[in-house]
Amino acid sequence: MNLYFRLIWLFLWRIRHCSGIGFLDTSRLSFRALPFDCDINMHVTNSRYPAFMDLARTYMIADMGLMKKFIKMKWMPIVNASETTFIRDIKPLEKFEIETKVVGWDEKYFYIEHRFVTPRALHCIVHVRGVFVSKGKQVPITSLVAEAGYVGEPPELPPEVVKWKQFLQLKKERNM
Rank of each mutant, 00 (worst) to 15 (best):
L3Y: 11
L3E: 05
L3N: 02
Y4N: 12
F5P: 00
L7D: 02
W9L: 03
W9P: 00
L10H: 07
F11Q: 02
F11R: 02
R14M: 06
I15S: 05
I15R: 02
H17P: 11
C18W: 04
S19F: 05
F23W: 09
F23C: 08
D25M: 10
D25W: 12
T26C: 11
R28K: 15
R28L: 15
L29H: 09
F31M: 13
F31A: 14
F31N: 13
R32C: 15
L34R: 12
D37I: 12
D37G: 14
D39K: 05
I40K: 09
N41L: 15
H43M: 13
N46F: 10
S47G: 10
S47A: 13
M53R: 04
R57S: 09
T58V: 10
Y59M: 08
M60H: 10
M60N: 09
A62K: 04
A62M: 06
D63C: 04
K68A: 12
K69Q: 08
K72G: 08
M73T: 03
M73I: 05
K74N: 08
I78E: 01
A81S: 11
S82D: 07
R88D: 02
K91E: 02
P92H: 00
E94G: 01
K95Y: 03
F96P: 00
E97A: 03
T100Y: 02
V102E: 01
V102R: 07
G104M: 04
W105Y: 11
Y109S: 07
F110Q: 01
I112F: 02
F116I: 00
V117A: 00
T118K: 04
T118H: 05
R120K: 12
R120Q: 12
L122E: 09
H123D: 00
C124D: 02
V128K: 07
V131E: 05
S134C: 14
K135N: 09
G136E: 12
K137V: 06
Q138C: 13
I141S: 08
T142V: 14
V145W: 10
Y150D: 08
V151K: 15
G152F: 09
E153R: 14
P154R: 11
P155G: 12
E160K: 07
V162R: 12
K165F: 03
K165M: 08
L168P: 02
L168G: 03
K172M: 07
R174L: 14
R174S: 11
N175T: 13
M176F: 10
